[in-house]
Design a protein around this nucleic acid. Structure first.
Lengths: 200, 200, 200, 200
DNA sequence: TATGAATGAGGGTTCATTCAT
DNA sequence: CATGAATGAACCCTCATTCAT
């Protein structure tokens, strides 16, 4: 990679990082491109060399950040082989929840902007070369399990939606209860959902 | 109510109705106050006599509209006495889901702007005199049931979050499956959540 | 006219006058709305209360200014009754040429932006109440003349185009000769054009 | 011409051709240098190696294209020797009008950007080696004619201005009449102008 | 000669809010 | 109470031009 390419990546990264910082602090709609470039220390025109508009950079961030959450969780899970399918799922969920609990601004950003569509896309067609294809991991986990599953996609969908919408309120506002209290209820429910989808 | 008061209410209602129409059609951020007042047929300044800003009118609409969803559902439920607690909850959920399925723009509007905080507030401190206090209804249902519940608020929270986040994607995008297919899975899960919270 | 209406007219007129000054000095494309409002002493938003964009104000100015040229010329002509048709036309042309010779910036502005379409429209559908309908004047002149004309519109078109395109260069650049030298040739040619269109 | 020189000429020609295409299609002010270089397949900086700015390339195009119009007309005229002076002028005019009628975008481009100054310059100091010096041709025509002319430059000026301004409107908008109807009137007037300038 | 990433001034336009009427 | 003309900050985006490579 030449000196020029390195410089290009620097600018682009600076914009991404700055935008992420502002999106998580002030929200997407309250963040202007003017402010992003100012804080990133690049000229206004430079923004448009790399991104089409604010929503382009937002989507690229969402995809990348949620991919990374899963990547971290899966990397960690692989250090504990021999987990059952159910325990594997719970492990991943717990790991991601903990990451988000430690990074509340990331939680806000993702919750407010994630839809099942973007999410699925992010996990199956990672943009960045070091992102994972979670779908493959999920399928491997299912195949490695002795028990078979009915409608694994619906199951995943219900789990993802249940988890993401409940933890948002618990982590950020301790509503209706704080996270540590919610967790056992939540994992219990997740396990029930999985059990229901298992074919004997 | 004097003639003047009636006229006042007229302007305010006109603003509310117009704003609701535009919020559901074009989204909140794409709707300007200028456009609301123009279509409502009142002067710009008049808006500020009744609402602080765009977000004030938005929140008032959210509260009112979600209260009405529950009111409709509960009114309908009362026509079927003798429902068990579990069946009552499912009845309400199903009724609300059907209302939203018939009114997709309302679904979009509410989903994009509802938080557990606003929601709880809307159901316990109804703004409008003909809105209900759902909390009372819920407690009555619990008390009327022979079985006792552990942590009914957490349970309600989990149910509300699960339902609201899953149906959004199913109704609007048929993702991961369309509503009719999702429903049995969803109601099954809801029943499991309730069962888990029952004290023997 | 109320105080408010007077104030409104003041703002609008201020914008028109300022824009005219800048269009004639720097040309339309080199003039920005930002600069117009700044010099007119009004806020940027005010511009958009009265005009759609720069081309809206430009066309309104062109129409009005060319109407006024004709109005002045015709008013002056009416002080000399008994002129023959040919002499009347020459009188009007000469008067307008002199007005433009005295106001070179107006000449530049009109020449660069006038098309036969806009011109015809300006003279037949005056925007301003004190502008004239030149078409009526022209027809009256024709009817009052003992000689009849073949294709009076084509004739007028040729005269207008010949005169307007030649004087531009003569007045502003003395090219190919200065105005006073061009005039006799020009009027001679105009008279010939008229003569050619007369029916014996 | 070396290989390098040929390559140089290629880039320059590519820029000229692309610019011409865009100027005639979208107009000068709507065409950006960025777009020209992109379509021409050269780098941004390269543009500035050959042209000062957009107006430089525009003027060079105007000169060249109007020279070519005359060159074509004169070449064609030379195939018909023995034409009288008057008929020769009419022949050239008619030929150029027909070229422009067949190429309306060229007409628009030239009309909107031609001034007598640029025009005279283009015809007397051709930039390109294969362009003509029309002035010489004109003078030869005059000298070959038995009749002598008074003020031939003014005469030419009047003819050029009359023709160019009238055909623009007739060809593009059929205003006030379409070209074929205008032609006889126009050529009649041109002949009258010439006759008037002849010295008996 | 040739490149094209970077610049940043400047463009047009919108709109929440105010306040004299 | 009601009006709506006026404001002007802030927005997004374009583009001619430069300069290190």
């Amino acid at each position: 990679m030449g000196k020029l390419d390195i410089n290009k990546k620097k600018k682009r990264d600076s914009l991404l990082n700055t935008a992420f910082g502002m999106f998580t602090t002030k929200g997407v709609s309250q963040t202007s491109i003017s402010e992003i470039v100012e804080r990133a220390g690049v000229a206004k025109g430079t923004f448009y060399l790399y991104f089409k508009d604010k929503y382009d950079i937002k989507n690229k961030l969402i995809s990348h950040k949620s991919s990374q959450l899963f990547k971290n969780a899966i990397d960690e899970m692989h250090k504990h082989p021999k987990l059952s399918f159910q325990d594997g799922i719970i492990f991943i969920i717990d790991n991601i929840i903990n990451q988000l609990n430690d990074n509340k601004s990331l939680l806000t950003f993702i919750s407010k902007n994630l839809s099942w569509g973007i999410f699925k896309n992010a996990l199956t067609s990672p943009e960045n070369e070091d992102d994972y294809n979670f779908k493959n991991v999920y399928e491997t986990m299912i195949n490695d399990s002795p028990k078979k599953l009915k409608d694994p996609e619906i199951m995943l969908f219900m789990i993802v939606e249940l988890v993401s919408s409940t933890i948002y309120s618990a982590i950020l506002y301790n509503e209706p209860v704080k996270l540590e209290i919610l967790k056992p209820y939540l994992y219990n429910t997740v396990k029930t959902i999985i059990t229901e989808h298992e074919i004997d």
